[in-house]
Design a protein around this nucleic acid. Sequence first.
DNA 1: ATTAAACCTGACTAAACCAGTATACTTAAT
DNA 2: ATTAAGTATACTGGTTTAGTCAGGTTTAAT
Lengths: 151, 151
Amino acid sequence: MSFFNSKLRYAICAAIDLAMQPSHDACQSREIAVRQGIPGPYLDQILAALKGAGLIRSVRGAGGGYNLARPADKITIADIVRAVLRTDRLFSSFSEEEPPDLNAPGVTWIVRDFEEQIEGLISSRLASTTVADLVNRKVELDDSLSYMPGI
Amino acid sequence: MSFFNSKLRYAICAAIDLAMQPSHDACQSREIAVRQGIPGPYLDQILAALKGAGLIRSVRGAGGGYNLARPADKITIADIVRAVLRTDRLFSSFSEEEPPDLNAPGVTWIVRDFEEQIEGLISSRLASTTVADLVNRKVELDDSLSYMPGI
DNA sequence: ATTAAACCTGACTAAACCAGTATACTTAAT
DNA sequence: ATTAAGTATACTGGTTTAGTCAGGTTTAAT
């Protein structure tokens, strides 16, 4: 079991890739695909989803490409997940639709309630992490690895 | 997207159901299935998985049935998930096998690393919640709902 | 000894989902 | 007009999900 699927991972990678490019020049999907090792046509689908959610902008035609639609610190991972899933909530909520049976919340209800607590945990982490955070993390790691004192 | 699948939910329900029965009398799978609304033959598979992991014990033959193998506060939800998944780790680990490339941890690595942080969050919650906790939660809710002051 | 109630095993299946491919089309710059 | 780029949608092989089903074994009660 792993938490993200490949589509989600690709989408996040693509967003980070765009965030790391010098701004204002549009990035072609082909370049992103090569840099990040994502199958070209599959990436196109993913970029379409990101665009549909307004996270990236595109310029069509020759010399066109993609750009982030907002600063990287205004795009959360939760935004990306929602975009790829084409939904406006991360998890299908249950307790709102099915309030506990008065006098007898079934065992099932208890389990779903617990499940939603975990989902809440996940959601808040996804919503509090931005693309910029991940870019920073990469830069930090790059620095700490290339500067090796004593070598 | 929802976090548990139905098999997992059924397994947790079954464990709670067993925990709520007066101890020492074995519980038949049929009874559990009816009480919790779980398809009979499917529940059998699930109980087999729980038994395989040593979480429940069974007594065969007429008048037989199932019991928790340990006190409910010694069985965590993580135990149940591992049992149903028939694996000994909740999530497939990545960073142990693939350390970051020295001089250049790829974007992919950063994403997987983030993913594992989330997985850690989930794991610790699953491991710190026991079947007894969920039983208690049910009892609390039952009480607070049946005692309605002013009615 | 027989029987019925229970658990055990493994094969099977329809539907959905995943991870892509493939194809045809639109748009814009040269 | 040509070409390089994004857009849209259909398709496909493989896997997973959510079960079902048939048959076998064990045990307790009669």
